[in-house]
Design a protein around this nucleic acid. Sequence first.
DNA 1: CAACTTTACATCGTATGCGAACTATTCGTT
DNA 2: AACGAATAGTTCGCATACGATGTAAAGTTG
Lengths: 161, 161
Amino acid sequence: MSDDHDLGPLEAHYCFTAYKLNRAFARFYQTVFGDTGLTYPKYVILNVLSESGPLSISQLSERAGVENNTLSPLLKRMASFGVLARERDPDDERRVVITLTEMGRTALDAARTAVASGFAELGLDPEEVKRSITYMGHAQAKLEKAKPAKLTMAALMGKTD
Amino acid sequence: MSDDHDLGPLEAHYCFTAYKLNRAFARFYQTVFGDTGLTYPKYVILNVLSESGPLSISQLSERAGVENNTLSPLLKRMASFGVLARERDPDDERRVVITLTEMGRTALDAARTAVASGFAELGLDPEEVKRSITYMGHAQAKLEKAKPAKLTMAALMGKTD
DNA sequence: CAACTTTACATCGTATGCGAACTATTCGTT
DNA sequence: AACGAATAGTTCGCATACGATGTAAAGTTG
């Protein structure tokens, strides 16, 4: 959609811009990762594990910003691919500990190099990016605190009672 | 993930921030729309149709920023819900023309009111939002032009040949 | 007019995201 | 020791996103 269109308030436009930017990034990563089986969420997880060391699924959920119910199947696929290992914590069997494997480290190194190479050619303005990150962080914090009223089916249909 | 973590270059951080902001917005809309069956992509489509009048699927794809192969099933669901109508163009039977129904207009009005109400409570800084939109637009344009090299399976596995 | 190319849309297969509900384990209270 | 609450993770069902492929219709060329 051209930016001539007005989706309503400024927030709606902001949302739509974030929607398009997110998918532009998704496509960029999809192109870089090609047919390797790697995806952006998997890449994020590998990075988090590389920096933090082994984590429980809940900890990983928190650091990677991915829901538990998204992580469970995702981590199972990654484990069967061989980039990480899942193990029940013997001290607390509710927990599963996720550890990067050697193959995972190798894959991450290669992925990081490919991504960095692609980003180097983008030519983004570092000052704009830094400011944008800060502003987006503000917006995200406020959105997560919001408690908007729910639309009902009756209201959607224009029925008043 | 806390922003202490460094995903690598500034671009990677930017991507992760966009990823989280997009999902924060998605959740916000999901909360507002509740069990009505409405979703953010459907909301965008209704808005585009409301402002542009009837469009072909390709035109809608372009204005809503949604791929044709995502739109086809989406529009079928929306048509069976009753908010829009699909009709083959008699002049060019390759094309399907999408038209908002009266029910669609009513639903969109209600949705816009609910969304605006939720946004009104957010308290975002208008100047930050405007700048952010501009910067994100720049980034999106560059990402869409990028032609990054693809990672191969061999490179992922650390094999040199 | 036939053959080929292009365009528009649809389907397939697989990916993720998330609300809801479920199962298993641990912790706290009585 | 028994029971309920809380925690951790899993599964279900449905949503979207998109590369690849397929079908049908229109346009172009010789």
